[in-house]
Write a protein that binds this DNA or RNA. Structure first.
Length: 182
DNA sequence: AGTGCGATTGACT
DNA sequence: GTCAATCGCACTA
């Protein structure tokens, strides 16, 4: 599913207008994964990770940055995909305002920046991303290019699993664009 | 009730 | 390259 989401579009509806971007980087957090938030079972924070696939799991990392995830399993299974970076498409002026920078590559390169650009916080936790609303996922008319795979970023446990995926030729990817899985 | 720690970012050397 | 900011929450007792 993390690979499948590469090239899909995240759409955010804001009062000022539509903001959207193409997913260029994802990470999978699978069942039995010590790096995954669901590893020790359901808690108040991670309960939406256990919703039917296609729901938003949003949490605050380091007290600073919100992270957008898509739940990835059947109902009751705690697994999901972290959306790490977008190529900005629509509403670039709004993203620039939300981020406080003009630079296109800095708008949504990294999960925290992405959430800030799209003004995503815990209020969106648990919403259905397969239905048009404040936040949803859409297909693109274009096929994505070559997809690279490598190690996940910023984790210490189960760090050697190659569960990070990225659009190989995209300058909007947050981490290394080399095949760095071992 | 107290404690320690991140699926990060931005500023700075 | 290093490092501090910042806070909700999971863990322990």
């Amino acid at each position: 599913m993390a690979r499948y989401l590469i090239g899909k579009i995240v759409v955010r509806k804001l009062p000022e207008g539509i903001v959207s971007g193409r997913i260029v980087e994802t990470e999978a957090y699978i069942v039995g994964d010590a790096a995954g938030h669901a590893y020790r079972g359901m808690t108040p924070r991670n309960r939406t990770l256990f919703l039917e696939r296609g729901h938003a799991y949003v949490y605050l990392a380091y007290g600073i940055s919100y992270m957008l995830n898509v739940s990835g399993g059947a109902k009751g299974i705690g697994t999901g995909v972290l959306i790490r970076a977008l190529q900005p498409l629509e509403g670039i002026a709004i993203m620039q305002q939300n981020r406080g920078t003009e630079r296109l590559p800095d708008l949504a390169r990294g999960p925290g920046r992405l959430a800030q650009a799209l003004r995503i916080d815990r209020r969106l936790d648990g919403i259905d991303l397969c239905q048009k609303g404040p936040l949803w996922l859409a297909r693109d008319v274009h096929k994505p290019g070559d997809i690279g795979q490598g190690l996940r970023i910023g984790i210490t446990k189960d760090a050697d699993r190659p569960l990070r995926f990225f659009l190989y030729d995209s300058p909007f990817v947050s981490g290394p664009r080399s095949l760095n899985s071992r």
